[in-house]
Amino acid sequence: MTPKLDTRRPMIQPKPSLHSRLGRLGSSSTFVGYLFVAPILILMGIWFYYPLLQSFMYSFQDISFLNPDAAKFIGFSNYIEIVKDKDFWTALSHSALLTVVAVPLQALIALVIAVNLNKVRRLKGVFRTLYYMPYITSTIAVTTVFMYLFMQHDGIATKALTWLGFRDVSWYADVKLALPFLMILTIWTYVGFYMVVYLGGLQTIPNDIYEAGRVDGANGWQQFWKLTVPMLKPVTFLVIMSGIINVMQLFDQPYALARNGSLGSPAGATSTIVTYFYSQAFSYNRAGYGSAAAFIIFAIIIALSMLQKRFVREEI
């Protein structure tokens, strides 16, 4: 059996001249594309990738910002010390607890508000702005106001909660209530943002689906549960995953709570994985140890992001 020759293509391809190659490169949109992305790539190289690489190298060194010349290579010692440090596990457990409790709660509240706000005919913009405000308000200001609300004796929220059986204490100063206080503060801060995201999602659901549902006899609850919730699945994934990443990076609120005291106060009750890293790197000047902690946070967030990608691929 003789092989068939492809007569459509010449056996010997003529080599394009240098001039024509350059001309093609110069005129191609690919080259222009590279030119456009070059500035940002260079800047990212300088401001992101180089520090990332340097930080990774620091994580294997005993290095202090105060005396960087005395840096010593210590292999995985920083990582081992972190894993053995009970404060790290406390901080990680707080971040995990915030993730498990605060993230679903804020998504649920945001969805409920968005669904109801979507039905509002008048002043919708005003309500949307009002709900969004906490997200763009200074964390320090919000935390200070919340501290007054949850203060012993005089705090309005404390007074209301004592009727429900809670103790009359300053929530942020109580080792058992400080973390729930941080959760409430976090939910309140982010719920408006996610409400706007859900609102955007709701507006993409065609009205015909609800009309068909009504024709089939679905009541309000059934429409919400059988139509709205499934149609919003991609948005919910986005909200949940972005919520997890936000909570894993939570820093401003515990920082504001600590005021002049040590981060994580009282007694480490509000420490998070980022406050742990920050204290080590910047308060105690342990650049190597802090870098190792930062890489552990980085690995956790990367793992969560990959998980998100996988779920989104499977579900959508």
Partner: peptide, 15 residues
């Protein structure tokens, strides 16, 4: 670091 651990410890004992 000593300050932070001292304060955390004393807060733990008191609260």
């Amino acid at each position: 670091a000593f300050h932070a651990d001292l304060l955390k410890g004393v807060e733990e004992i008191i609260f």
